[in-house]
């Protein structure tokens, strides 16, 4: 009956589940601003640091964040990778740069593409600016920013950047 030749080694059992997501209050608010072309972070009442995109909480203290801080669209590459393999279902073709970017005035990085440059010229500390899609295409999405493009500025020492931010945020710290 069940000799090796007739052993079932596998079969397809597709799973389909339908989900409706709730982004959360803070992220919803952030995405509504993105639709208007504005990047709005939140400041932690406990640490004074600015988190973008905000998630409604200060992960360091577990306290809710409510104070909004509108940010510009320039920032610094804190670190990055050059991806040489395709991302499933993503039209971006390799090799491309995915960077951890810290916007000016913010204290936490997010990941986004860095493009329209020679990949070899991008370094830790490279200054970048957002390149937006046409206004007509803006949606409730981080993808309204097509990618970040290097600025013609000297790279930043990220350790000095961190030190100056930590000094700066001290004055915003509440009890």
């Amino acid at each position: 009956m069940s000799d090796e030749k007739t052993m079932v080694e596998g079969f397809e059992a597709p799973i389909s589940l339908h989900y409706t997501f709730a982004a959360g209050h803070a992220i919803s608010k952030f995405l509504r601003s993105m639709k208007e072309g504005k990047i709005v972070g939140q400041r932690s009442p406990a640490t004074g640091k600015v988190i973008v995109p905000p998630r409604g909480s200060c992960p360091e203290s577990g306290k809710p964040t409510t104070e909004e801080v509108e940010l510009g669209d320039t920032g610094t590459v804190i670190t990055f990778t050059v991806v040489h393999i395709p991302i499933p279902n993503n039209p971006v073709k390799p090799p491309f740069i995915v960077a951890n970017i810290c916007l000016d005035g913010a204290d936490q990085t997010f990941i986004h593409l860095v493009s329209d440059c020679n990949n070899d010229d991008v370094k830790i500390g490279t200054r970048v600016k957002a390149v937006w899609k046409d206004k007509a295409e803006w949606d409730y999405s981080m993808d309204n920013i097509k990618y970040f493009k290097p600025l013609d500025e000297a790279p930043v020492d990220i350790e000095k950047l961190k030190a100056s931010r930590l000094k700066e945020v001290g004055k915003y710290r509440h009890a």
């Binding site: 959360g24 209050h25 919803s28 998630r55 409604g56 577990g62």
Partner: peptide, 26 residues
Amino acid sequence: DAGANNDVEMLMGTLQEALSNVGMTQ
């Protein structure tokens, strides 16, 4: 349906309530 709240937003207040009930912090 807890609406727009995500898991963290749903949890934070309850955590603080449980801690402050007995005058504790993390």
